[in-house]
Amino acid sequence: MGTDTLDRRDALLRLLADGGLHSGAELAAALGVSRAAVWKALHRAADDLGLELTAVRRKGYRLARPLELLDADSMTSALSAPARQRLAGLEVLFSVDSTNTRLMQAAAAGAASGRVCLAERQLAGRGRGGRDWVSPFGENIYLSMLWRYPGGPAGLGGLSLACGVAVAEVLRQAGVADIALKWPNDLHWRRRKLGGLLLEVAGESHGPSHVVVGLGLNRRLGEQQAAAIDQPWVDLAAVLGDALPGRNRLAAGLIEALSAALAAYGDGGLAPVLPAWRAFDAYQGEPVALLMGGQRITGTCAGIADDGALLLKTADGLRAFHAGEVSLRPLAGGWVRA
């Protein structure tokens, strides 16, 4: 799809985002194109982005549900003065392969610490283990932040836990009761996945290093959109109902909290947030399986060590693990990845 076509599509979506009825003549005049070009662009956008578009004969077009598109100025104005000082730039994209990939490329080109990238959708968003992240347009939060540290990557082992605490606290303040963290980087609500973090680190062994923290958060997911998800899931719309926060306000709160957590980790490491992570840990004392490469290690979750390692009580005694994926045993029996 050419640049002009993409620009036309994006401009149309901005006009239709309010959910109101807009005539073909109005849209054509706003874009300086023919009504036939408007019709073609709208239907392509609906097909490409999975949007439900309604055409009312002789009256115009509208989206089935209004969209709150992300706006850099709105998010920036909602930040505190210290948070604005921590940022080196805030970019909002309609579509991108991956916000993490974009910032990793920017980091390699010398981008400053504190750069943030958000997108309305991701074409190749990734979760843990390389899984695709379901990415409906204009509904969820897809956010990445670049941060630089003077030390090497080895000192960043507990950073995903610190970032998980930051996100969990934002959600709790937004009214999400029963928010929980699952080691090392998943956000759960009543045993269902609400979001996840993906950290990508690069640098010299003795420093400097940089990390890109990616957050995918389910704000609103339709059943059809979520059909590809292979684990129990939930979205904020189901949890909060009418109290669901706007995307720009929510994103601003996450940017504020994550930038503060990244800065604080450079000063104090993981120790200051260990009590908070342990308070959000809903799975201590439960039977779990740790999947690590081709290995499957079963045991009882015993929380986390002071360096952020997962502690398992196994048949061989208490063991610590710094990598792997936890599968939970549901109450009904059997193992489930969650």
Rank of each mutant, 00 (worst) to 15 (best):
G207P: 07
T298H: 06
D4T: 15
S259K: 08
L69W: 03
E52F: 13
P184T: 11
A30W: 06
A45S: 15
A338K: 03
A237K: 05
V288N: 00
Q295P: 00
L87S: 11
V134Q: 00
R44M: 14
L262V: 13
S113L: 09
L118H: 05
P272K: 11
G127I: 00
G195M: 02
A25R: 15
A309Y: 06
A315L: 03
A28C: 12
L310N: 03
P82V: 09
L21M: 10
G266H: 12
G50M: 07
L16W: 10
L15C: 15
G20P: 07
G24T: 13
R220K: 08
E256Q: 14
R329E: 11
A332Q: 14
D307W: 06
N218E: 01
G196T: 09
G203W: 05
D306N: 14
Y265G: 12
D178E: 11
L42M: 13
L197I: 08
A154L: 13
S113Y: 10
L31G: 11
P153V: 08
I297C: 01
R319Y: 00
R84P: 10
L12C: 11
W335V: 09
K193W: 04
Q284N: 04
E223C: 04
S209D: 07
A279G: 12
A30N: 08
S205C: 09
V273Q: 11
A109V: 03
K182S: 06
A251Q: 03
R148Q: 12
G333N: 05
L123T: 14
G241E: 06
L254C: 07
L171M: 09
A45D: 05
A64L: 11
V116E: 02
E139H: 03
L53G: 12
K40I: 14
L258K: 10
V239L: 02
Y142T: 00
D7W: 14
R220V: 03
P153A: 09
N248V: 01
K182A: 05
T76P: 00
R35I: 14
L194E: 01
A30C: 11
S144A: 13
H206T: 15
Q85E: 15
L70S: 02
A202E: 14
R247M: 06
S80K: 07
P150S: 12
L258F: 06
V167T: 13
G285E: 04
V211N: 09
A289M: 12
D235H: 02
H206A: 15
Y61A: 13
V326W: 01
G157A: 13
W277D: 02
